[in-house]
Simulated scan of single mutants.
Amino acid sequence: MASNMLTLLRLSSTMGASTARRLMVATAALIGVGSVFYMVSDMDATVRRKLSARVSLMLGEEGFVAHHAERLTTETSRAIRPFVWHLQHNFQRMVEAEEHKRADHLRRRRTAQDSQIYFDELRIRAQDLANAVRLVSSDSSMC
Protein backbone atom coordinates (compact mmCIF):
# COMPACT_ATOMS: atom_id res chain seq x y z
CA MET A 1 0.00 0.00 0.00
CA ALA A 2 2.84 2.35 0.89
CA SER A 3 4.60 1.61 -2.40
CA ASN A 4 1.37 2.39 -4.28
CA MET A 5 1.15 5.71 -2.46
CA LEU A 6 4.75 6.53 -3.37
CA THR A 7 4.02 5.66 -6.99
CA LEU A 8 1.00 7.97 -6.89
CA LEU A 9 3.09 10.79 -5.41
CA ARG A 10 5.72 10.36 -8.15
CA LEU A 11 3.01 10.36 -10.77
CA SER A 12 1.45 13.48 -9.27
CA SER A 13 4.73 15.32 -9.44
CA THR A 14 5.00 14.61 -13.17
CA MET A 15 1.31 15.34 -13.92
CA GLY A 16 0.81 18.40 -11.89
CA ALA A 17 -1.01 19.05 -8.68
CA SER A 18 -4.46 19.80 -10.05
CA THR A 19 -4.51 16.73 -12.33
CA ALA A 20 -3.30 14.51 -9.51
CA ARG A 21 -5.92 15.95 -7.21
CA ARG A 22 -8.67 15.28 -9.76
CA LEU A 23 -7.33 11.77 -10.27
CA MET A 24 -7.34 11.15 -6.50
CA VAL A 25 -10.87 12.54 -6.12
CA ALA A 26 -12.09 10.41 -9.02
CA THR A 27 -10.37 7.34 -7.56
CA ALA A 28 -11.85 8.03 -4.11
CA ALA A 29 -15.29 8.56 -5.65
CA LEU A 30 -14.96 5.35 -7.64
CA ILE A 31 -13.92 3.43 -4.50
CA GLY A 32 -16.83 4.99 -2.57
CA VAL A 33 -19.39 4.17 -5.25
CA GLY A 34 -18.02 0.62 -5.51
CA SER A 35 -18.24 0.19 -1.73
CA VAL A 36 -21.83 1.48 -1.65
CA PHE A 37 -22.78 -0.75 -4.58
CA TYR A 38 -21.25 -3.81 -2.84
CA MET A 39 -23.06 -3.03 0.43
CA VAL A 40 -26.39 -2.59 -1.37
CA SER A 41 -25.98 -5.76 -3.40
CA ASP A 42 -24.90 -7.78 -0.33
CA MET A 43 -27.65 -6.30 1.84
CA ASP A 44 -30.31 -8.72 0.53
CA ALA A 45 -28.28 -11.79 1.50
CA THR A 46 -27.35 -10.27 4.87
CA VAL A 47 -30.95 -9.39 5.71
CA ARG A 48 -32.17 -12.85 4.69
CA ARG A 49 -29.48 -14.53 6.78
CA LYS A 50 -30.27 -12.45 9.86
CA LEU A 51 -34.04 -12.84 9.48
CA SER A 52 -33.66 -16.58 9.00
CA ALA A 53 -31.60 -16.84 12.17
CA ARG A 54 -34.15 -14.77 14.14
CA VAL A 55 -37.13 -16.77 12.85
CA SER A 56 -35.39 -20.07 13.61
CA LEU A 57 -34.58 -18.89 17.12
CA MET A 58 -38.15 -17.70 17.76
CA LEU A 59 -39.71 -20.88 16.39
CA GLY A 60 -37.38 -23.00 18.49
CA GLU A 61 -38.25 -21.04 21.64
CA GLU A 62 -42.01 -21.31 21.06
CA GLY A 63 -42.03 -25.05 20.36
CA PHE A 64 -43.43 -24.46 16.88
CA VAL A 65 -42.15 -27.72 15.44
CA ALA A 66 -43.38 -29.87 18.34
CA HIS A 67 -46.79 -28.17 18.33
CA HIS A 68 -47.33 -28.63 14.60
CA ALA A 69 -46.00 -32.18 14.63
CA GLU A 70 -48.56 -33.02 17.31
CA ARG A 71 -51.30 -31.22 15.36
CA LEU A 72 -50.43 -33.08 12.17
CA THR A 73 -50.41 -36.40 14.01
CA THR A 74 -53.84 -35.70 15.50
CA GLU A 75 -55.32 -34.58 12.19
CA THR A 76 -53.86 -37.56 10.36
CA SER A 77 -55.24 -39.96 12.94
CA ARG A 78 -58.64 -38.32 12.70
CA ALA A 79 -58.58 -38.58 8.89
CA ILE A 80 -57.43 -42.21 8.85
CA ARG A 81 -59.72 -43.47 11.63
CA PRO A 82 -62.82 -44.17 9.41
CA PHE A 83 -60.71 -46.18 6.98
CA VAL A 84 -59.21 -48.18 9.84
CA TRP A 85 -62.68 -48.89 11.26
CA HIS A 86 -63.90 -49.99 7.84
CA LEU A 87 -60.87 -52.24 7.40
CA GLN A 88 -61.36 -53.75 10.87
CA HIS A 89 -65.06 -54.32 10.19
CA ASN A 90 -64.33 -56.03 6.85
CA PHE A 91 -61.62 -58.15 8.46
CA GLN A 92 -63.99 -59.15 11.27
CA ARG A 93 -66.68 -60.13 8.74
CA MET A 94 -64.14 -62.20 6.80
CA VAL A 95 -63.01 -63.96 9.99
CA GLU A 96 -66.62 -64.70 10.94
CA ALA A 97 -67.35 -66.03 7.45
CA GLU A 98 -64.30 -68.31 7.66
CA GLU A 99 -65.40 -69.47 11.13
CA HIS A 100 -68.85 -70.31 9.74
CA LYS A 101 -67.27 -72.23 6.85
CA ARG A 102 -65.05 -74.11 9.30
CA ALA A 103 -67.97 -74.93 11.59
CA ASP A 104 -70.02 -76.09 8.59
CA HIS A 105 -67.09 -78.20 7.39
CA LEU A 106 -66.66 -79.76 10.84
CA ARG A 107 -70.41 -80.46 11.05
CA ARG A 108 -70.41 -82.12 7.62
CA ARG A 109 -67.31 -84.10 8.56
CA ARG A 110 -68.97 -85.33 11.78
CA THR A 111 -72.10 -86.25 9.79
CA ALA A 112 -69.98 -88.09 7.22
CA GLN A 113 -68.16 -89.99 9.98
CA ASP A 114 -71.46 -90.93 11.64
CA SER A 115 -72.80 -92.03 8.26
CA GLN A 116 -69.65 -94.06 7.63
CA ILE A 117 -70.07 -95.83 10.98
CA TYR A 118 -73.78 -96.45 10.29
CA PHE A 119 -73.13 -97.89 6.83
CA ASP A 120 -70.23 -100.01 8.10
CA GLU A 121 -72.54 -101.47 10.76
CA LEU A 122 -75.28 -101.90 8.12
CA ARG A 123 -72.83 -103.75 5.84
CA ILE A 124 -71.83 -106.05 8.70
CA ARG A 125 -75.52 -106.81 9.51
CA ALA A 126 -76.23 -107.37 5.80
CA GLN A 127 -73.33 -109.81 5.61
CA ASP A 128 -74.57 -111.55 8.77
CA LEU A 129 -78.08 -111.82 7.27
CA ALA A 130 -76.64 -113.07 3.97
CA ASN A 131 -74.65 -115.71 5.86
CA ALA A 132 -77.74 -116.70 7.84
CA VAL A 133 -79.75 -117.02 4.61
CA ARG A 134 -77.00 -119.19 3.09
CA LEU A 135 -77.01 -121.37 6.18
CA VAL A 136 -80.77 -121.74 5.99
CA SER A 137 -80.70 -122.57 2.31
CA SER A 138 -77.90 -125.09 2.79
CA ASP A 139 -79.78 -126.70 5.74
CA SER A 140 -82.95 -127.02 3.73
CA SER A 141 -81.15 -128.69 0.87
CA MET A 142 -79.90 -131.35 3.26
CA CYS A 143 -83.27 -132.33 4.44
Rank of each mutant, 00 (worst) to 15 (best):
T74P: 01
R10A: 08
E99P: 01
D139T: 15
R108E: 08
R71M: 12
A29S: 12
R134G: 09
V95K: 00
V65W: 07
R108W: 04
A29R: 09
A130L: 11
G32H: 02
A28Y: 02
Q92V: 09
H105P: 00
A132L: 08
A45V: 08
R125C: 10
Q92K: 08
Q116E: 14
M39Y: 06
G34Y: 03
M39T: 05
S13T: 04
I117Q: 13
T14L: 09
D128K: 15
R109K: 10
F64Q: 02
R49V: 05
H67S: 14
L72N: 07
R21A: 11
S77V: 02
R108A: 09
M15I: 04
S115C: 11
R81Y: 09
L106G: 03
L23S: 02
V65Q: 08
M5E: 06
E62I: 11
L6Y: 07
H67D: 12
V36N: 04
G34E: 04
M1W: 02
D44R: 03
R48P: 00
F119M: 08
A53E: 11
T111K: 12
E75Q: 10
I80Q: 02
G34V: 03
M15A: 10
E99D: 08
V25H: 03
S3P: 01
V133P: 01
F64W: 07
A103G: 02
E61P: 00
A112V: 05
V36K: 02
F83Y: 11
S12T: 05
M43L: 08
L30C: 13
S52L: 04
D139N: 14
L59A: 10
H105W: 09
M58L: 14
R54K: 13
A45D: 05
H100Q: 07
E96N: 11
F91G: 14
T19K: 08
S115G: 13
E62C: 10
Q88P: 02
Q113I: 11
H89T: 05
S41H: 04
L30V: 09
E62Y: 06
L51Y: 09
G60F: 00
F119Y: 14
E98G: 05
T19W: 01
M1G: 09
R134A: 15
S35P: 01
T7P: 01
S56K: 07
S77P: 00
V84C: 01
F91Y: 14
A69E: 08
S140K: 15
L72D: 07
S41N: 06
N131D: 13
Y38P: 01
I124F: 15
S140D: 14
F119C: 03
F37G: 11
S13F: 06
G34Q: 05
H86V: 06
I124P: 06
N131H: 10
R125Y: 12
A53G: 10
Y38M: 05
V95L: 06
R71T: 13
Q92D: 11
L8W: 02
D120R: 12
I31D: 11
Q127K: 15
T14A: 13
S137M: 13
A20I: 01
L11F: 05
R110V: 06
R134N: 14
A97W: 02
V40I: 07
E121W: 09
Y38T: 05
S35I: 03
H100K: 07
S77W: 03
K50D: 13
R81E: 14
G60P: 00
F83V: 06
T7E: 07
V136E: 12
A20W: 00
A53L: 08
